[in-house]
């Protein structure tokens, strides 16, 4: 059962909820905000993609991504070595920010997406579902894997002139993680998720 009315979150227009088909989009008629964007098998796909992401995040974090060679000296870097190098230079504020946005929050978001979709998949109510969903929405913009990927590209272009570069398996795992993460945010239909969570919690 769908609610009788809804309001646009950006212009506060009172609306009758549209019921778009899979693949269609519902925009607010007044401000153009994307209200709904239903996806086929959103819960199942979110579950599968978050599980894949949780597996990929291990090699992406632990294996060397990019290595350089200057005058016979070589040096490999993982996702963590940027954080450690900044800490060594006493730039702890920047180090913490990089740690949060490139390692911690991608992991937390994947974990939350997995927990929520798993509970919805087996239809098990959990008091924490509301908290998890809320945190997932708020933390989403602070996980910046795609920005980090662009950072790798710019750093490599800068280094290409002065050193020899080699790419490790960690980079491939990172790119795969990036693709999975993008697909995940594309498949997760938060409108459907909130409604399912509300339905689950109503049952005794």
């Amino acid at each position: 059962m769908s609610p009788r009315y809804e309001a646009c979150p950006e212009c506060d227009l009172l609306l009758k909820p549209a019921a778009p088909e899979h693949g269609e989009k519902a925009h607010c008629p007044r401000c153009g905000y994307l209200l709904q964007r239903p996806r086929k098998h959103s819960i199942e796909r979110t579950l599968a993609l978050s599980l894949a992401g949780l597996i990929l995040i291990v090699p992406a974090n632990l294996l060397p991504m990019v290595g350089i060679k200057i005058f016979g000296n070589s040096h490999d870097g993982t996702l963590w070595s940027g954080v450690l190098a900044l800490l060594k230079e006493d730039m702890w504020a920047v180090a913490v920010l990089v740690l949060i946005s490139s390692v911690l929050l991608p992991l937390v978001n994947l974990g939350l997406a997995f927990l929520i979709s798993f509970h919805l998949f087996i239809q098990k109510a959990n008091f924490h579902l509301f908290h998890w969903m809320r945190w997932l929405q708020h933390l989403n913009e602070w996980a910046m894997l795609e920005v980090y990927a662009l950072g790798i590209i710019v750093a490599c272009v800068k280094l290409a002139g002065m050193a020899e570069l080699r790419f490790g398996f960690g980079l491939y795992a990172f790119i795969a993680l990036l693709i999975v993460n993008t697909l995940l945010s594309n498949e997760l239909d938060s409108y459907l998720f909130w409604r399912r969570i509300a339905q689950l919690s109503k049952k005794p």
Partner: peptide, 12 residues
């Protein structure tokens, strides 16, 4: 910021 963290880690 990310670019600097990568450069700092690699070019050491």
């Amino acid at each position: 910021i990310f670019m600097i963290s990568i450069l700092v880690a690699l070019v050491d």
